[in-house]
């Protein structure tokens, strides 16, 4: 039994239990546009033969840091009927931004740029979170501090550019 399979299973288990725990503990669901820092712009692309990707960016956030690298995360929800792709990202605080993934090999974590643009399937979502995908912010002019805001411009294949504001905060494994 290898690490990959197990960590995959565990992540599934964790997600399932977290969902159960959430219900059991009586937390309520997020609604659109609640608390500060949740930018949820919805952009409809111009229809191509009736196929439209409708994207919503949920919970953008960036990690506070002491040096010149950091990571940003968010979830992209696609309520349309066409698959979209995240082609590139820019940020106002960084001159070098890449979409990265963490690859686990036998208990070893390796960070690298994604090989192909990440997809947001029709009716599905793309989740960026610690241990999975992140937006790598490099060559920061100064370290990101809690309370600061990072402006991210996400460029999608069908939906074009979407700007979001990501508050800088401390980020844990599960939230």
């Amino acid at each position: 039994m290898d690490w990959k399979r197990w960590s995959g299973l565990v992540m599934l288990g964790v997600a399932a239990v977290a969902a159960v725990a959430l219900v059991a503990c009586g937390d309520d669901d997020d609604d659109d546009g609640d608390g500060a820092g949740t930018a949820s712009p919805t952009v409809a692309a111009s229809p191509t033969q009736g196929q439209v990707a409708k994207l919503q960016i949920i919970d953008p956030r960036a990690r506070d840091t002491t040096n010149d690298v950091s990571a940003a995360y968010f979830t992209v929800k696609n309520t349309g009927d066409a698959t979209d792709r995240l082609l590139s990202v820019t940020a106002d605080v960084s001159t070098k931004v890449e979409v990265h993934e963490m690859v686990m090999e036998g208990g070893t974590a390796k960070m690298q740029a994604v090989k192909a643009p990440l997809e947001i399937p029709a009716g599905g979502e793309l989740v960026l979170k610690p241990g999975g995908y992140h937006i790598m912010l490099m060559n920061l002019a100064s370290p990101l501090k809690e309370g600061q805001q990072v402006k991210l411009t996400l460029t999608f294949e069908k939906s074009g550019k979407i700007e979001v504001t990501a508050p800088v905060k401390k980020i844990e494994a599960m939230n």
Partner: peptide
């Protein structure tokens, strides 16, 4: 320390 993802999370 230049690890932006899992090290600071941990």
């Amino acid at each position: 320390t230049h690890c932006p993802d899992i090290c600071p999370t941990t």
